[in-house]
Write a protein that binds this DNA or RNA. Structure first.
Length: 572
RNA sequence: CGGGGCGUAGCGCAGCAUGGUAGCGCACCUGCCUUGGGCGCAGGGGGUCGGCGGUUCAAAUCCGCCCGCCCCGACCA
């Protein structure tokens, strides 16, 4: 393509609205423009990147035996009422009426439609296994869209659904999708991890998330230094290092601790480590008060706690509720004497003498031994993992933490949706059984932002070859003379070789072309100028490494073509 | 939805405490010049100052209401 004939409105300055680097650079490089909060137009260059991501996803899904289809973006209320989600999905579901006052919504996901289709069309075990997918625009009316494309209201997603006759074959479908996802992310050229994940509101037996590693990611992910264990911190298990429960020692004693509302203050006041203090948090789980105790230097993992309680929602109780439940003010809660269910983190049982709140203002108890003094407490894994924890899967490995951006999530759903919506089939014996499902999402547009979040420097975007808007940019240093002629020739020959190439044919100073070239994230750059031509050479610069090499004019096309082919470059 | 901030030319911003009819840099257009890292010189175009209403002889500036956007929080593949 010719730069001068393509809409690439680059910006020198960063628009004030953009907070994260990927958003800033996508605006500056002319990839996207905002139409409304969380709603973006993809300009030619950004759209090329999006289409390249989409192409890889599509190829790998097809290779894995999934079949592409396309479902409606506007869906009738009736279907959502049947699944119960018309009421329960909340305000994220954008609803409206048509001219006949019939309710509709913009699809935030497609479980209803696909399940409706399958319950009508799939009747026999002979029709399965079946895997259907689409690449489609979703709309979720997020409370607070942010970070540009990363958390937009309208976004492009690949969603696939598998249908099997039993758990065993469904597990096989899941494994195939897992492998296909690995193939997708390998080809994309991104640093990523597949980790065990919480299933959240989608439900199902278990799931994996695919995380692109980036310091600005919104998720914390744990991984083992020795084996391939990885998990979202929401889900990551804590196992204790080898050891015995502590034996009870001193007796419980009450001490005055005026004004010490926090663990730090109590520990400092009493001259003990924070880990010797147990904090007791009063939660409401689906409206019922429960207590959770963790070591003073640990964080309670609310997701684990919620799953443990099998609750729909848990949140911290208000000071009023705390006073009512414990008899003492916020900041002085403790497990002793509580009449509500008490859960205590497993590692507290390793402590012989804990400091806890006395459920009374300005008072704590010392010498508490959980096993001896609070027999009603139930032991569980409640806290979040931290760096250095032992790996739950292997001996010797320890936990490391990274930040990640969730770009894929796969679930085994079991029969949750098929039973609710009556999607059944007849087996070989003529028995009616619920179809066993799985669902598999990839945030196609989010991948573009994640890739830029992972690949950038002070000069702009650095994209992997597979998804760069162009594989190579040709920059003639002049719009006349030999530099121009040779630039044109290189451009034509690269095109003929099937390489995605951009010719910067603008009549601008070299500096401008260099700056724009760097900003756009094109992996290779051929500079055609007098300097090199004197020696019959052109300059090849690698965007990522900054490495520069001089190539003889007549070898440049072959060299670049080879680099692009071997590096997994695509052409649109 | 709660808390905070912002809305002045395409972008980044100043002007607003103390009201007097709008300015700077970049971008854009024209000419000359320059041509390996966002040149230089000269000239030029572009603004209902987010919207509506009020106060005033006079409002970007003061007051009220509304709208939009950004950040933090709760929520979410």
């Amino acid at each position: 393509m010719l730069f001068s004939r393509t809409l690439i409105p680059t910006l020198k300055e960063t628009p004030a609205e953009a907070e994260v680097i990927s958003h800033q650079l996508m605006l500056r490089a002319g990839f996207i423009r905002k139409l409304a909060a969380g709603i973006y137009t993809w300009l030619p260059l950004g759209y090329r990147v999006l289409r390249k991501v989409e192409a890889i996803v599509r190829q790998e899904m097809d290779k894995a035996g999934a079949q592409e289809m396309l479902m409606p973006g506007v869906q009738p209320a009736e279907l959502w009422q049947e699944s119960g989600r018309w009421e329960h999905y909340g305000k994220e579901l954008l609803r409206f009426m048509d001219r006949h006052d019939h309710g509709f919504c913009l699809a935030p996901t497609h479980e209803e439609v696909i399940t409706d289709l399958v319950r009508r069309e799939v009747r026999s075990y002979r029709d399965m296994p079946l895997n259907l997918y689409q690449v489609q625009t979703k709309f979720r009316d997020e409370i607070r869209p942010r970070f540009g494309i990363m958390r937009a209201r309208e976004f492009l997603m690949k969603d696939a659904y598998s249908f099997d006759v039993d758990e065993e074959t469904s597990a096989e479908s899941y494994r195939q999708m897992h492998a296909a996802y690995r193939a997708v992310f390998d080809r994309l050229g991104l640093r990523y991890r597949a980790v065990e994940a919480d299933t959240g509101s989608i439900g199902g037996s278990f799931s994996h998330e695919f995380m692109v590693l980036a310091a600005t990611g919104e998720d914390d992910i744990a991984s083992c230094t020795a084996c391939d264990y990885g998990a979202n911190v929401e889900k990551a298990e804590v196992v204790l290092p080898p050891g015995e429960p502590a034996q009870p020692g001193q007796a419980v004693a009450s001490v005055a601790t005026p004004g010490t509302h926090t663990v730090e203050a109590v520990a400092k006041f009493l001259g003990v480590e924070a880990r010797a203090v147990a904090k007791t948090l009063i939660y409401l789980a689906d409206g019922q008060p429960v207590a959770a105790c963790v070591r003073g230097d640990r964080e309670l993992n609310e997701i684990k706690f919620k799953n443990l309680l099998n609750a729909n929602e848990v949140f911290l109780a208000s000071p009023e509720v705390i006073a009512q439940v414990t008899g003492g003010p916020l900041g002085f809660s403790g497990p002793l004497g509580l009449k509500i269910p008490i859960w205590a983190d497993q590692e507290l049982y390793r402590e012989a003498a804990l400091v806890v709140g006395a459920n009374q203002a300005d008072t704590h108890l010392t010498g508490l031994h959980l096993g001896r003094d609070v027999p009603a407490a139930r032991q569980a894994d409640l806290r979040s993992v931290v760096v250095g924890d032992p790996c739950p899967r292997c001996a010797g490995g320890t936990i490391n933490l990274d930040r990640g951006i969730e770009v894929g999530h796969i679930f085994r759903l079991g029969t949750k949706y098929s039973q609710a919506l009556g999607a059944n089939y007849l087996d070989a014996e003529g028995n009616s059984k619920p179809i066993v499902m799985g669902c598999y999402g990839i945030g196609v547009s989010r991948i573009v932002a994640a890739a830029i979040e992972q690949g950038n420097d002070s000069n702009g975007i650095i994209l992997p070859l597979a998804i760069a808007p162009f594989s190579v940019a040709v920059l003639p240093m002049s719009t006349s003379g030999q530099a121009w002629d040779e630039g044109q020739r290189l451009y034509q020959e690269l095109r003929a070789a099937g390489v995605d190439v951009l010719l910067d044919d603008r009549d601008l100073r070299p500096g401008v072309k260099f700056k724009d070239g760097d900003l756009l994230g094109i992996p290779y750059r051929l500079v055609v100028g007098e300097k090199g031509l004197k020696n019959g050479q052109v300059e090849l610069k690698h965007r990522a490494s900054g490495q520069v090499e001089m190539l003889p004019l007549n070898e440049a096309v072959a060299a670049v073509t080879r680099l692009v082919r071997e590096g997994g470059g695509q052409s649109l």
